[in-house]
Design a protein around this nucleic acid. Structure first.
Lengths: 74, 74
DNA sequence: ACGTGGTGTCAAGAATATTTGTCATTGCCG
DNA sequence: CGGCAATGACAAATATTCTTGACACCACGT
């Protein structure tokens, strides 16, 4: 019984544009991480820590699940 | 403008007992992490990755925010 | 008294997330 | 055309999370 593999998707890019052309740098500043970190997370290179995830959700004033979705791969 | 400090609290212990005496080991197996990891997260030694957080929530069949809460310290 | 299961904890190392610095590309505006 | 802001990308260094193995402690049943 192999533990389920999980993929995490996010809506950051869409939310940035819904929030008035917010740039990656703007978002990074508001979250408190570097621009490269926002870029990597937004591009799905890796998924963020729970802290960072919560802060992204707070910036967009959304529940965490509206920003990040957990997909089971089997 | 220092970026807000964040503390993450969790309801894992309560949820384990609501779920019929589930042990840390049981939970660890269902999440796919080690018992020590569950112990550390439950005890707030550090907060989990987003993947692990999602899987904990799935085990308890709760939204992520019902398991982990993000508290602003100022 | 003895064994056992559940838990707390530690240390070393592997794996992953994050930072900083740097460079290339693209689109836009003067 | 020339400059600039936004983005994508990479590498090296640091930080954090997670694993494995070990040991102690306590509560419980026999």
């Amino acid at each position: 019984m192999v533990p389920a593999k999980v993929v995490i998707r996010n809506q950051i890019r869409a939310l940035r544009f819904e929030s008035g052309e917010m740039t990656q740098q703007d978002l990074a500043d508001r979250i408190g991480v570097s621009r490269q970190t926002v870029n990597a997370i937004e591009g799905g290179k890796y998924s963020p820590s729970l802290e960072v995830a919560f802060r992204v959700a707070q910036v967009f004033d959304k529940p965490l699940e509206a920003v990040f979705q957990c997909l089971m791969t089997e």
